Structure formats: C-alpha cells, structure tokens
Amino acid sequence: MSAETRNPLPFPRAILFDLDGTLIDSVPDLAASVNELLESRGLPELSLPEVRSMIGNGVRKLVQRAFAAQASPLTEAELDEANREMVQIYSRQLTRLTSLLPGAQEAIAHLHINGVKLGVVTNKPQVATREILLHFGLTDRLGAIVGGDAVTHMKPAPDALFLALDQLGVEPSQALMVGDSITDVEAARAAGIPVVLIRGGYTKAPVEELGADLICDSLKDLPAALNELRKAA
C-alpha cells in the first residue's frame, strides 16, 4: 500500500465517491459514443487518450470539447442538440465496455460492512449513473446516488455533495470525499469536506498538485488508509 497524507483527517461517518475515473473506467464507452456522434456529423474519430483528456464537468462539456478538438466548435443551440443526441447514444452502451476500477468492489463492500454510510456524487446524469451502479451490483450498499442533473449546479459546486449528505443524514464535518480530479477537490473544499484522491483517474494535472488531504495509489489502499485514520482518531 502507498498513501500520502497532507493533513490529519477525522475518521468519516460517510464517504462520497466520484464515479468516472474513481469507481469506474468509462472512457471506452464514452469514446465510442462521442465518436458515433462525430461520425454522424462527418467528423473524424478521437482516440481513447484524447477522449480521456476531455472528461470532466459532465457529458455536455465532453461534447463541447470533442467538437472543438475537431476544429468544429458548436454554437449554444448546436451544443444543446448535440448533447441531447450524445445522451441518447451513450444510454445505449453505458456498460458495454466500461469496467470497475481495481479495488472498487472490495472497498465499498469493506466500508459498508464496517458501518460507513456511502454515496456516489457525479456529474454524469442520474439515470445513467444508477444504471451503471446497478449493473455492477453496487446500489444496495449506497445510501445516496446523486447525478449532475439532480442539482442546479454540478461539481465543482458543492450542491450535489450537500444533497447526498442530506440523504445519508450526515453532517459535512463527519464526511469524506473520494475522487480523482481537481473538480472533486474543489467541490469538497466548497462543502467543507476533506478529500482523498486516487491515482490513475482522469485528472490532467499530477495528482500531487491538486491539494488533496490524502492520496492513495488505488481504491485497494483506501480501507487500510482509513483504518490508520481510525486508530489515530
């Protein structure tokens, strides 16, 4: 196990997980979907690394970035239409190529068994999020699932975190956020919640530069790192 801690953290009553790049690797399905959309407009495909670098801030932002990368930027009206089409395309293949990231299943099972309340907070739409989590058998262990369209302001705003914690019945002072990007860090800071980042997600900057309270190599390391926090509490 390798974990780097910046500041002492209280052991949490609740943990909120990001989805894409934290619990799941959704790049293959997102890339297939956005490339189908681009092809329908007569534009060339993007590579997996290119799509990976565009993920963050929701599907609409991915569509906007994809068209801009092909030197075909969209007006707001065109973006609205392309986003609606992208959502329809992606809904047909949410789990065809998507996989759980290493340690995700085990970490959630371990934390659930040990009485930690769990939630998922993501910018992905609510219906798609629930379908993915159901596919991987995680919903029974989650007390809150909040998608980007369930709140007025998506991450990095704190709205979704507050909604999830309200559903879990836990105050922000008793919670922890686990994610992979600066969006998660900023959302957690805005909510007044400590944040753990997992290496290997969809961040464009080195994870060490994002200001997390704790960094783990993978979700496999998270339960052990939290056990150390419990001992120190």
Rank of each mutant, 00 (worst) to 15 (best):
P156R: 04
D217S: 15
R141E: 11
G119M: 00
L197E: 07
S40L: 08
A69P: 01
S33L: 03
I215V: 06
D184L: 07
L62G: 10
I182M: 12
L62E: 06
M86Q: 01
P73V: 02
Y202V: 06
D18E: 02
V120G: 02
T5S: 13
G201R: 01
S218C: 06
S40R: 12
N227E: 15
R130Q: 10
G119S: 01
P8W: 04
L100N: 03
I193R: 08
S26A: 04
A32D: 15
L118P: 00
L23P: 08
R96C: 08
E171I: 07
L219N: 03
V146Y: 08
L168K: 12
R13A: 13
E85Q: 13
F11C: 08
Q105F: 14
G137Q: 09
D80Y: 02
S40V: 09
A190C: 09
L94K: 07
A224F: 03
V170D: 07
E36V: 11
R92C: 13
Q70E: 15
I108K: 14
G103S: 05
M154T: 09
A160G: 10
A104E: 14
E78W: 08
L226T: 04
S218F: 13
L214S: 06
C216D: 09
V151G: 01
L176T: 01
E45F: 12
A233D: 11
R199S: 12
T183W: 15
S218A: 04
E39W: 11
T122P: 06
K155S: 03
P156N: 07
A212S: 06
D80M: 00
P28D: 00
S47E: 10
V116E: 05
Q167H: 11
L133E: 04
N57F: 08
L16P: 05
S173R: 14
K117S: 13
E208T: 14
E209L: 11
D166K: 15
Q64V: 00
K231R: 11
V121Q: 06
T183L: 15
D159S: 08
Q64F: 03
V116L: 06
M86N: 01
R141F: 10
R230F: 08
G143Q: 04
L111Y: 03
T152E: 13
T129D: 03
L161Y: 09
A212R: 02
A232Q: 14
G147S: 08
K155W: 05
G103R: 00
T22Y: 11
L210K: 00
V196A: 01
E208P: 15
D159T: 01
P28G: 03
A69S: 15
Y202G: 02
D217M: 11
D29C: 03
S99W: 14
I193V: 12
T122A: 07
V87R: 14
G179R: 07
D25K: 09
A109Q: 13
P172I: 01
F136C: 11
T98A: 01
K220A: 14
V196H: 01
A175L: 05
P158H: 05
R41I: 05
V87D: 13
G147L: 06
A14Q: 09
L46T: 05
I55H: 04
L226D: 04
